[in-house]
């Protein structure tokens, strides 16, 4: 990779998110702190997909959400490059963040709970444009139709409600809502893990096609390592809030360096009865 020429879209440095724990009752004192994300650093180049993997509770979702400022970071810097400017997301106030939100969007895991059942598909997909006052009336409808076609749905679906659609189609609606703002950075938080295998493949293909067409940069949070291997250029392995290993996808899967990565990889069951699982949990893995 010719990293030297390309300026990274996102530079995350010494980034942490800690949750304080308070004692019960009056005079709540802080008794402990959970380091959900602890001193994480990585770069993300434009057009790249970074896979973020780890067990549940390893901090991968918290990390992605805190980068987007859905949660307030504890320390560190997140340099986001937009229109030739480099902005530190950690220092920004809420109000200053709003215009930047058009650049960063999120696709959620559960296609059933992430769509408002009382809004039509057109309202759901068009809401970001409405909130940011980017389009209205006919133009808004045109852009929604355009986006629905892009994610493989029909313009006439605009008037229907989410309950009329299957899981895969709902996830397409979620993708349309995220991409209608033409973001440069998209966080896919377990975007395909709730879907059935046959539909999952369709949505993965869609995400890849859209990435090429709209020059998107993905942070792909997932626990399914084979999906991550398929879609990512680089992979970061998280364990107890820290990135234990980050490298090109090929190297992570072929020559994992960290013991935790090796353990995680050995736990994947292959759809081949001749490859037996040889899994030995390592001692510092979280208690099950």
């Amino acid at each position: 990779m010719n990293d030297l020429k390309i300026e990274p879209l996102l530079k995350v440095k010494n980034f942490s998110k800690h949750f304080p724990i308070y004692s019960q009752g009056f005079g709540r004192k802080q008794i402990d702190v959970i380091k959900a994300v602890d001193n994480v650093s990585f770069n993300l180049n434009p057009g790249e997909t970074l896979g973020l993997v780890g067990e549940s509770g390893s901090g991968k979702t918290t990390c992605a959400r805190t980068i987007l400022r859905a949660l307030k970071p504890t320390s560190g810097t997140v340099i986001f490059r937009t229109n030739g400017e480099a902005i530190d997301l950690v220092k920004l106030k809420e109000r200053e963040l709003k215009p930047l939100r058009t650049q960063m969007q999120m696709i959620f895991q559960d296609p059933f709970s992430s769509l408002n059942p009382r809004m039509t598909v057109g309202d759901i997909v068009g809401e970001p444009l409405y909130i940011h006052k980017l389009a209205r009336g006919k133009e808004l409808i045109d852009r929604v139709d355009d986006m629905l076609v892009k994610v493989g749905m029909k313009p006439e679906h605009r008037q229907r409600y989410p309950h009329a659609f299957s899981g895969g189609q709902r996830q397409r609606i979620g993708i349309a809502r995220a991409l209608i703002m033409r973001p440069s950075l998209v966080v896919c938080d377990e975007a395909v893990s709730a879907l059935d295998v046959s539909v999952q493949a369709q949505v993965i293909n869609l995400l890849e096609d859209l990435q090429e067409e709209l020059n998107l940069t993905y942070i792909f949070v997932a626990h399914d390592l084979s999906v991550v291997r398929h879609i990512s250029n680089r992979v970061a392995v998280m364990h107890q809030g820290k990135i234990v290993e980050i490298d090109e996808t090929e190297s992570i899967f072929e020559t994992p360096q960290h013991a935790y990565t090796r353990m995680l990889l050995s736990a994947i069951p292959h759809p081949d009865p001749d490859i037996k699982l040889e899994f030995t949990p390592i001692s510092d893995s979280t208690e099950i």
Binding site: S198, V199, A201, Q202, S226, I231, F253
Partner: peptide, 19 residues
């Protein structure tokens, strides 16, 4: 349609349509 253990293959073959 299962992602195989190969890195960055072109496209996943998928079953078209929905159940």
């Amino acid at each position: 349609s299962l992602p195989r253990n190969e890195t960055k293959q072109a496209r996943l073959p998928s079953i078209t349509g929905n159940v």
